[in-house]
């Protein structure tokens, strides 16, 4: 009799992707249409920048699944971006699939030994070490001149090719970015959902998780590697857009931007990262006349979100929708995308 009760309780199956993942992937996919709908270079470059920013910020989003705040995004972007620049300029490799694979795999592989070293650190110590790491990578870009071109960077990248077809003009560059962004978002969505129990457990109580048999460090290391790889894809998109790999594109302080996108958009869901990037990159553009003001705006938004709107934009929207629907919200309007999906 009680057996029946427990099986009945388990009948409900939770979907692999929540509504947030579907909406996010659909939005990113929709950007493929932009070059066919407009020839306005302003809109195209804006879309390009948003996609790069959002993809890079996924590195922050992934690590935040385990409550780890990472400043390492620019490092791994740089590694991905410089890998592509070196391959294309020095070795003449221009196939977009090969380059994308390299932009993902090289940072991810480098992240594994690094993660092994630093993932034992928690909270503040993890933050500090990723910050230090970003400074080191920045200095290395300048110092390792034979490889990186030092302060001049690597200029004159050839256009990438898809099936032998050159992707050279503005709209092609946007299509390349969209492809890289979609890949990054898809990998992140699958990865964070596949291991959502593990990540949520590490975030909430890693001591308990370990006592139940979870090898927390393996998941942390894996997440660090995937976050590095996805940031590397963003680095590829960035150097491809600029046709140059230069240290200033990966300034340590830019890590703050990626964190801001994720937090302001709402760190609980992948949609938050995308929405954060859309809003803030557009805002930066809107205030472009006084471009130097954007850090101040970011700062203000960070403080406001932290103090009064913990869930960020998506968190607030979710709450509002839930309130309107009463207590029976489902699907998209889930406050905790980690484990609790599909409550009814």
């Amino acid at each position: 009799m009680s057996n029946a009760t427990v099986s009945r309780l388990l009948e409900r199956r939770s979907p692999f992707f929540s509504g947030y993942e579907w909406v996010t992937l659909a939005l990113v996919l929709a950007t493929f249409a932009v070059p066919f709908l407009t020839v306005n270079p302003q809109i195209m470059s804006q879309t390009n920048l948003i996609l790069i920013a959002a993809t890079a910020a996924l590195g922050v989003y992934i690590m935040l699944r385990m409550d780890l705040m990472s400043f390492a995004v620019p490092s791994f972007m740089a590694i991905g971006g410089y890998t592509v620049a070196i391959l294309s300029i020095r070795l003449g490799i221009t196939d977009v699939f090969v380059l994308a694979a390299a932009a993902f795999i090289v940072p991810a592989l480098l992240a594994i030994p690094l993660g092994w070293l630093i993932l034992r650190l928690k909270g503040v110590y993890f933050v500090l070490v990723t910050f230090v790491l970003t400074e080191i990578v920045q200095l290395l870009l300048f110092e390792a001149a034979p490889l990186t071109g030092g302060a001049n960077g690597l200029v004159g990248m050839p256009a990438v090719k898809i099936f032998g077809f050159e992707l050279w003009d503005n709209s092609h560059v946007l299509l390349t970015t969209a492809g890289l962004a979609f890949t990054g978002f898809l990998i992140t969505a699958i990865f964070t959902r596949r291991y959502r129990y593990e990540f949520a457990a590490i975030e909430k109580n890693d001591v308990l998780a370990e006592s139940l048999g979870l090898a927390c460090w393996k998941y942390k290391a894996l997440a660090f590697a995937v976050a590095a790889g996805v940031s590397g894809l963003a680095g590829f998109a960035l150097v491809n857009m600029l046709m140059t790999a230069h240290p200033t594109s990966f300034a340590p302080m830019s890590s703050v931007n990626y964190i801001t996108y994720t937090i302001v958009g709402g760190k609980a869901s992948i949609l938050g990262t995308l929405v954060g990037a859309i809003l803030l990159v557009s805002a930066t553009d809107y205030f472009a006349l006084s471009g130097e003001l954007s850090p101040g705006l970011y700062g203000l938004l960070i403080i406001v979100v932290t103090l009064v709107a913990k869930g960020g934009v998506i968190g607030m929207l979710t709450k509002t929708v839930q309130r309107l629907r009463g207590r029976n919200g489902g699907g998209l309007t889930n406050p905790k995308p980690a484990l609790a999906e599909g409550k009814s």
């Binding site: 909270g123 101040g296 705006l297 700062g299 960070i302 403080i303 932290t306 103090l307």
Partner: peptide, 18 residues
């Protein structure tokens, strides 16, 4: 601790921009 990090970081940006 994460919130303290965010507000001090935000405040730095505001201060520097100011």
């Amino acid at each position: 601790h994460q919130a303290t990090l965010m507000v001090t970081m935000g405040f730095y940006l505001v201060l520097a921009t100011g």
